Amino acid sequence: MDWPHRFLTLDDWAELPETPEFHVEVVEGVLVVSPRPLFVHQRAVNRLTYWLDEKLPAGYSALNEAEMVVADVPLTVRVPDVIVVENAVVQAHTARCHAADVRLAVEVISEGSRRTDRVTKFSEYAEAGIEHYWIVDLAPPVSMVRYRLSEDDYEDFGEQSGRVEAEFAGKSLEFDLNALTPHADEV
């Protein structure tokens, strides 16, 4: 594959071929390529996306691995594990959305993403104005840290494990983090 030898633009990004064997993002015009997450990670993302989509207030949709433009110049395109947007964004039939359209971004930590999810994306998402940011860690015990934007920075709502309750758009959402990973009898 012939990769561009310059800082990428959104047009360059759109012209890149799909690479199902890699996770690809652009950070300040630079292509960032990493291995696809393990199946247990993908299963957790699918379960969380489904659960959120079923529980969200009317008018919102959860999507997994959707492209999100964080900044146009220099170009930063992130592909969060899960995003929540208003239904109108989905109905627009576009290939990607802008961070301004995202109300919640969720990252599930995978091997090699801990610092990126907890530091880099944390600051990028706050600067972009994403109201809610959740970080899920599948290492036992499965846990989640929830953040909510307060002025220009995220307020930490603490780390939770087991059954959790989170507020989104005035609705209380409850679920069991342990259900994101396979149980011993499923292995």
Rank of each mutant, 00 (worst) to 15 (best):
E186I: 03
R115C: 05
F175L: 15
D152W: 01
E127C: 06
H41R: 10
L149M: 05
E54F: 02
A128I: 00
W13G: 02
R148D: 09
R36G: 02
L149I: 04
F22M: 11
S143K: 05
Q91S: 12
V89P: 09
Y50W: 11
F175M: 14
P17T: 03
R118H: 11
R103H: 14
N64W: 09
A44M: 05
R115L: 15
S172P: 00
V102N: 11
R6G: 03
Y154F: 14
E67L: 11
V32R: 14
I83N: 04
A95C: 10
F7Y: 07
V119N: 09
H93P: 01
N64F: 11
V33T: 04
D137I: 00
M144S: 06
A44Y: 02
D2N: 11
R47Y: 03
D152K: 06
V145N: 03
A66S: 06
D137K: 00
K55G: 00
V79I: 13
F22C: 13
A58P: 06
V90F: 12
G170A: 05
E67C: 04
V24W: 04
Q42P: 01
S123L: 13
W13F: 15
E159P: 01
V89C: 15
E18P: 03
E15Y: 00
V32M: 14
D101H: 13
V102T: 02
V32W: 05
A88M: 10
A126I: 04
D11V: 05
R78P: 12
D11S: 09
K121Q: 11
V187C: 09
F7N: 09
V32I: 10
T94Q: 14
G59R: 00
L177R: 08
A126H: 09
E124P: 01
W3M: 15
P57I: 04
A99W: 04
H98D: 14
T120V: 10
G29W: 00
Q160E: 14
A66L: 06
L173I: 12
A92D: 13
Y133I: 05
E155N: 02
E86N: 06
P57C: 11
E127Y: 02
R103E: 15
I135Q: 08
L138W: 03
E107R: 02
V26W: 03
P74A: 12
I83L: 15
G170R: 00
W13H: 02
E107I: 01
P4D: 03
E186N: 00
L75K: 00
D153K: 01
V119Q: 15
L138A: 10
L180N: 06
K121F: 05
R115A: 15
